[in-house]
Each structure stands twice: as structure tokens, then as C-alpha cells.
Computed example of a mutant assay.
Amino acid sequence: MSTPTTALGVVIVTYNNAPDLPQCLDALQSHAGEAWVVVRDCGSSDLTIEIAERHPVVNQVLAGTNVGFGAACNEAVDSLGPDVEMVLLLNPDTSIDCDLADLLEYVARFGEFGCVGIQQQSFDGDLVWSWDKFPTVPLEWQKARKKPLLQRSPAGYTDDRRVDWNMGAFLLIPRAAFVLAGGFDKGFFLFYEEIDLQQRLARLGRQTHYVNKFHYRHDRSDKATLWREVLRLNSRRAYDRKWLSRFETLQCQVAQSYRWIQDVIRPQRDRDRRLVIPRLLATWGLIRAVVPPEEIEGGVDSWSSVRPFWAESGKPAPRNVAQ
């Protein structure tokens, strides 16, 4: 393994990830053995903490309440020593199969960048779309009408390129850039927090790059439970309130509604038809996901995992900074 060109800290946020975590940590030990690895657990009830504490690649385990992905990442980054110059945010259901020292040397050519993402593959070796453009009304209608998109095509993953944002399962961020942007917005419990961060980095002049030469594997099994889909759309509405005008937000809601209704007529997967009603309700802010998930009675795929909008917890929404 080549020598790291800069001190690397790896942050892994966990919540009941006992089945996935050993593979993730084993891969880190093989490909990033000199990195400082912090696991921030969000109240797991399984053996996640024990697995992390026993693994030789883990330097620190932070156990706490489930404050959400972004807030937990912020805590873990704050805990890193002053010598750590580069931070890798890594999902526990991933497996790195490239040398991170080589990646650090490779990205040095970008200068003062914001984020770097690399090619994502399933554990079967299939390419997985992992970058996109920032949400806009035209993009929402392109997706609603199922128009061909470069970021949803193999052609978008043949070379390095500047992108708006990379998926948060693997994000390499200079610590200075993370601090400059103020870290993650705690108003996002889960979903869209990485898009919001990369939006803020872009406005600070810190570019995001997709690197095709390196790749990692990510568990892409069907995770589209009712709770996750409602929470994802709740986060999308929070993102829109922060970055889009009210009229743009309304147009995006109309485009998304058109998309969900099309799923009744021509669903691509069985789950799409099953989730049409909750997606429509969440798109218009009529239901909200219960957070944290440990408060759910009946499971994350039951209607008890969501509540009507008037019964929300009162957690403040991200402030609109686009106006």
C-alpha cells in the first residue's frame, strides 16, 4: 500500500448496522489501514457498537442518541485530531476496494475542491448512478417524463467530470472545506443533507468532482420502505424551502405528482404502485415521517411510521437562503 499524502479521517455513522459493518471495516483495514476511523453510533439496539469496538481498524467509537445523519457526522468530524486534513464520509453498508492513499494522491490535482465522489457499484458489480444535478424545475420535469439523462446513463460514468453533487454513501471532503461550509445542516434528519452541503460548497467556490478511476461497492437492496420514502420527500421539501422560490417549489411538487401518478399506470417496480399514495401525500406536506425511527411502533413499512402534518414534532425547517 502506498503512503498517504495527507492525514485521512474516516467517519461512519451507524444505526443497527451489525450485518453490514464487519465487511465495511475489513475493507477499510485492507485499503486505508493508516486512516483514523471514527464510528458514531446513533442508538443501535443490535451488536453494532460491540463490532465497532472490537475491530482493529476503528480508533474511536462515539455512542449517542439518534440525532440524524448530518448532526452525527458533524460530531464525528469535530472529534478528529487536528492533523486530519481530509475526511471521508462512508456508509456502513459499503465496501471500499481501492487504495485510498492512491485516491488522495489523485485528487490533489483538483486543488481546493469541495467534494469528491467515486464510481459506485453494487455488490454484483453493476454500475449504480451516484451523481446528479441540483434540483430544479426543468430537471424535475425531465425525471417525471422519464427523459434520458446523462447522470442516469452509463455514458455519464466513463470519465472524470465536474458535477453538482455526489451521493453521500462515499464523500471525500477536505476538512477545511467542511468547516468553511459549517458542516451539515442539522435541520435534515436524513436525505438531502449531502446535496445541501454540496450546494453551499459550490456557492463558496468549492467544486464537486466525480472520479471514475476508483470505485466502491454499496448495498443497493430494496430499502424503499414507506418511512424512508416519506422522510426522503419531507427532506426534499425542506431543501426546496431553503434553495428554491415558492413558485419553483410549487412547480416541483406538480412535476413530482405527475411522476407518482404515472407510476400507477406504468410502474417500473411493484413498490412504485404501492407507494403512490404516501408519496403524493408527502409531496404536498400532508404527512411526515416519525423521527427518530426508534419511536415507531409497528415497523418502518407501516402507516404508524408517519404522522399527519399537524402532529409534527415542531422541529424547525432549514431557513431559506436562496432569496
Rank of each mutant, 00 (worst) to 15 (best):
S30Q: 14
W131G: 05
E194Q: 14
P293R: 02
R217I: 01
D240R: 15
G205K: 00
V306W: 05
D222A: 15
S153H: 05
D164S: 07
G125P: 01
D26H: 15
V291Q: 10
R273Q: 12
D222V: 10
D196C: 04
F214H: 06
W260V: 09
V290A: 04
D102N: 10
I49A: 10
P4E: 13
V77E: 05
R307M: 11
L139M: 13
R274S: 06
D263C: 13
K242D: 00
R236P: 13
Y239L: 00
G64N: 01
R206K: 08
A144N: 02
L204T: 06
C24S: 02
V276E: 05
F178K: 01
S95C: 11
T249W: 08
P82A: 02
K147S: 11
E295N: 15
R40I: 11
D159R: 15
C42Y: 09
W303I: 02
A27D: 11
R237P: 06
V179S: 03
A202N: 12
L25Y: 06
D46L: 05
I296L: 06
E50P: 03
D46C: 04
V300N: 12
Q120I: 07
V306P: 07
D99Q: 03
N74Y: 05
L250V: 11
H209T: 00
V179I: 12
S45I: 15
N66R: 02
P154T: 04
E248F: 01
P138S: 04
R217T: 06
R259N: 12
Q268T: 09
Q29T: 13
A32L: 00
N91G: 13
P278K: 00
R220T: 15
K146P: 05
R217M: 05
D132F: 13
I261Y: 07
D185P: 08
W227T: 03
K186G: 13
R266D: 05
N166A: 13
V38N: 02
S2T: 14
Y239K: 04
T94C: 09
L226R: 06
I265S: 12
K223N: 14
Q121I: 10
N212Y: 01
Q119C: 12
V84N: 07
E53D: 10
R203F: 10
C252W: 06
V58W: 08
A282S: 03
S2Y: 12
G33F: 04
V300M: 13
G183F: 08
L88H: 07
P316R: 06
F189G: 01
I296D: 04
V264I: 15
N91F: 01
G314H: 01
C24A: 12
L127V: 00
W131P: 08
F113P: 03
A311G: 10
V290S: 08
Q121K: 14
F178W: 05
S221R: 09
S221L: 03
E112M: 07
R279P: 00
E75M: 14
E312L: 12
Q60I: 01
D41W: 01
D126W: 07
Q151R: 11
A101P: 07
D263T: 13
L100F: 02
R273A: 15
D41G: 08
S130P: 14
L88A: 09
G168S: 07
D97A: 11
P148E: 03
Y157P: 07
Q262C: 11
D222Q: 10
A27Y: 03
A181Q: 04
N320H: 15
G168V: 02
L90T: 04
H218N: 05
L62M: 09
R307N: 08
